[in-house]
């Protein structure tokens, strides 16, 4: 009865699509078309076929780079969580003013271009930088190199990505009904069990959101690992850049990019099934 077979949308329903059109056309031209081109290149260059994918998925170099990428992303995510959770908790417990002050500090760093922040770390951690100087002053004879190591790239990535984690967790913590905590206390829950049985599960959505965002962004991170990381522990995006810029291996680079994209989509898909993607921005 209420079923209507209609090929033309109602007049009123055209407007949202019209409003969406500029963005949709822009994305199609400058994102979707190049992406499809990358996909085509990955199976046509140099010879048509799946040879590029075979190399990417079976070659030991590529496997090492992908494993390293996931390992780094995981490490960065865990570090962001360890740094971000206590800070978010602090923000949710202090006065509104103090929370705003902390939030301002975080967003100020967040708004600073990450290229600038990456160079700042190079200055700080370099051989003539203040950190090495401090170590020498403290009597460490032969300070280990800090720059161009896994340590420096991880540190900088944590610094750059932690705001995503903090904001996501803080948003969730802020929304926790204080009467839930009071109620748990009235039933006999003290600090540790209160945290384990009530607070942590209530903040889990924030942890999940923050972690997925940080992990996914980290998977494709280019500038920071390339500038600060160890060349021997390259990440996927860096290697893709190398393939294309230095070896002009467009097909191989494209295949790697597609693999990275598919993996990212799988992670987001799993997250969507469990929590719903819309939660990422709520």
């Amino acid at each position: 009865m209420g079923f209507k077979l209609s090929t033309l949308p109602d007049r009123q329903n055209i407007w949202p699509w019209l409003l969406l059109a500029p963005l949709a056309i822009y994305l199609a031209l400058f994102f979707l078309v190049p992406l499809v081109e990358v996909g085509i290149m990955s199976v046509t260059e140099p010879p048509p076929g799946l040879a590029n994918y075979e190399r990417v998925l079976t070659g030991s170099l590529y496997r090492k780079v992908f494993l390293n990428t996931f390992g780094t992303a995981l490490l960065v995510t865990v570090c962001c969580l360890l740094v971000g959770y206590p800070l978010a908790y602090l923000m949710s417990t202090v006065s509104k003013r103090a929370a705003m002050a902390i939030l301002l500090l975080i967003t100020m760093s967040f708004w600073t271009s990450f290229l600038v922040r990456t160079y700042a770390w190079m200055v700080l951690l370099g051989n003539n930088g203040p950190v090495i100087w401090l170590m020498q002053t403290l009597g460490i004879q032969d300070p280990p190199p800090l720059l161009f190591t896994r340590f420096s790239s991880t540190l900088a990535m944590v610094h750059i990505l932690a705001p995503y984690m903090i904001m996501n967790i803080y948003t969730v913590m802020q929304k926790i009904d204080p009467s839930l905590i009071r109620s748990a206390e009235s039933m006999g829950a003290y600090g540790r069990s209160l945290f384990r049985h009530v607070y942590l599960p209530l903040t889990a959505p924030g942890i999940a959101n923050g972690s997925v965002l940080v992990f996914v962004i980290c998977l494709g991170f280019y500038v920071t690992p390339v500038l600060l990381g160890s060349p021997r522990e390259q990440m996927a995006a860096g290697l893709i850049g190398n393939q294309i810029e230095q070896f002009l291996a467009f097909g191989l680079g494209s295949a790697m990019a597609i693999v990275l994209l598919v993996v990212t989509l799988i992670i987001l898909g799993l997250y969507h099934r469990r929590f719903g993607l819309d939660k990422l921005y709520g």
Partner: peptide, 20 residues
Amino acid sequence: LAPQERNIGIVFQNYALFPH
């Protein structure tokens, strides 16, 4: 005595059930 030690049952206005 802390709230935990008072052995008092409370029903809050919004019920305060643990959603998880």
